[in-house]
Amino acid sequence: MVSTYILLAWTWARAAMAYRASFALMAVLGTVLAATDVAVILVIFANTTSLAGFSHDEVLFLYGASNVAFCFCDMFVGNVDRISRHIKAGTFDAMLIRPVSPWIQLATDNFSPTRAGRIAQAAAVLAYALAALDLDARRLWMVPVMIVTGVVIFASLWTLAASVQFVLTDAPEVVNAFTYGSGQLTQYPFSVYARDLVRGVTYALPLAFVNWQPGLYVLGRDDPFGTPSFMRFLGPVAAVGLALPAWLAWRRGIRHYRSTGS
């Protein structure tokens, strides 16, 4: 599985790197584009010292932790949401006749290493925030755990988004609200959002476990919404709880695939 992934990704990467100048330009511009979200946070904190009870550095920590996971998924999994294009163009048929999972073929299709710049950008923000905040070193073990959790949650979301497109071939854009919307939602401390919305993204769609709940633990803070402290450690459970239905939905989607044309 993994070796096939690397192989396919490498083939696409080589094709992308054939045009060096445009490759470098895209890497730089992609990083700048991703950094516009940081620019927004900086502009906000040029006008205030605290947002919904969280400081500049704390917000950057939450942003960085979520965005490392999000950009990682965007690079390595995000292409699966282009499935409706492949279905319409008939190229999904070609993926189904290969002895490799179509999920891997989709994820690596047109794989471009230029997106690595975004991960680097998010990682730099996270590193800055970790250095700037005076954190309890005994709690830092949670940082890698929350990033892996975030990767699994976002990857599951993207897989769900792709599965939905077996049915929703006419309006694939609707899934952007869930994939990119989740990326946007987790950039800020959840204390800015309304209680009901936070309940929804904790118990229905477990986005709170990407960076909010584990992040509170790392920052050594109580949840303003008053959830019990054991919730801070439930991230991996939530991730598996989302990955399972995503995998089932994908399998179901393949079995109901209708193909197009004559």
Binding site: G90, D93, A94, I97, P99, S262
Partner: peptide
């Protein structure tokens, strides 16, 4: 995927 190794498929239209 097992079958894919034993069968060859060509679509003329695409």
């Amino acid at each position: 995927t097992t079958l894919a190794r034993r069968i060859g498929v060509v679509f003329g239209q695409r």
